[in-house]
Design a protein around this nucleic acid. Structure first.
Lengths: 127, 127
DNA sequence: ATTCTGTTCTAATACTATTATAACAGTGAT
DNA sequence: ATCACTGTTATAATAGTATTAGAACAGAAT
């Protein structure tokens, strides 16, 4: 599991972990119906507490990215072919808007923002 | 000052405030060299504490979006014609990447992500 | 001068993040 | 059936963040 936690980051550990798991799913390194490591083993791997990993998993479950099967484990949900749910779409837009506004304030124009976005997408999908 | 704070949001008040100020700058409602309201008056307007507004202003100063002149006030910096600094660009990419990865996991493809991005940009720049 | 400004300090409260243990009950493999 | 493994739950402690409150200070603006 190629995950790197920065304990001193201002981003909470469970968020770092959830983000990196999402990235691994987006790149295809982790595929639908794959089992995630148990909270205990991943916690030991990363040198963090079991509850911290557990929290990350539940964040991913809230977002419908994984399914937690009680007393058994967590598996990755298939990428929806219908696209995101309303809830998922709202969340994306909610978080995307301030970032884009910030980019504009930094002097980026539409083309530049789209170009950066495009390159990040390529980085993930072709990385 | 058209700012709406949701006290029960999981997003901290000072972040909500900073984000909305950024949006007002991005839309052109607030322009370069405009003075921001004093921390005391804006705090009174919004019904929050002076220190909360002060923290939002300092967040914006860290991002070089405004300049705080000690014992005097805060003014909005001009939008850079050189585009973002390296620090600003790194911050944007750092926050953009997990969002894009999440979008991909939700089943959005490159075109759809660029389309959403484009529509948000238009929403901001064309009111 | 007087008011307004951001700054600084102390303080209190509530919440979040993280870790540490421990026990519990269902799962899965042997 | 045993036994290790699973997520769940509970308690607790620590540290840090977010928010509010009140006050005092010194420079700025008029």
């Amino acid at each position: 599991m190629f995950i790197q936690i920065e304990p001193t980051s201002e981003i909470p550990i469970y968020t770092q972990l959830a983000n990196q798991l999402i990235e691994l799913i987006a790149t295809g390194t982790l595929k639908a119906s794959d089992a995630l490591p148990s909270v205990r083993s991943l916690a030991a791997d990363l040198g963090v507490n079991m509850h911290t990993v557990n929290k990350a998993y539940h964040e991913l479950e809230k977002k419908k990215i994984i399914e937690i099967i009680p007393k058994s484990g967590a598996i990755i949900n298939p990428i929806s072919s219908n696209g995101p749910s309303d809830m998922q779409m709202d969340l994306i837009k909610l978080h995307l808007k301030p970032l884009i506004a910030e980019s504009i304030v930094y002097g980026l124009d539409k083309e530049q923002i789209l170009s950066i976005t495009s390159s990040i997408i390529s980085e993930i999908t072709e990385g």
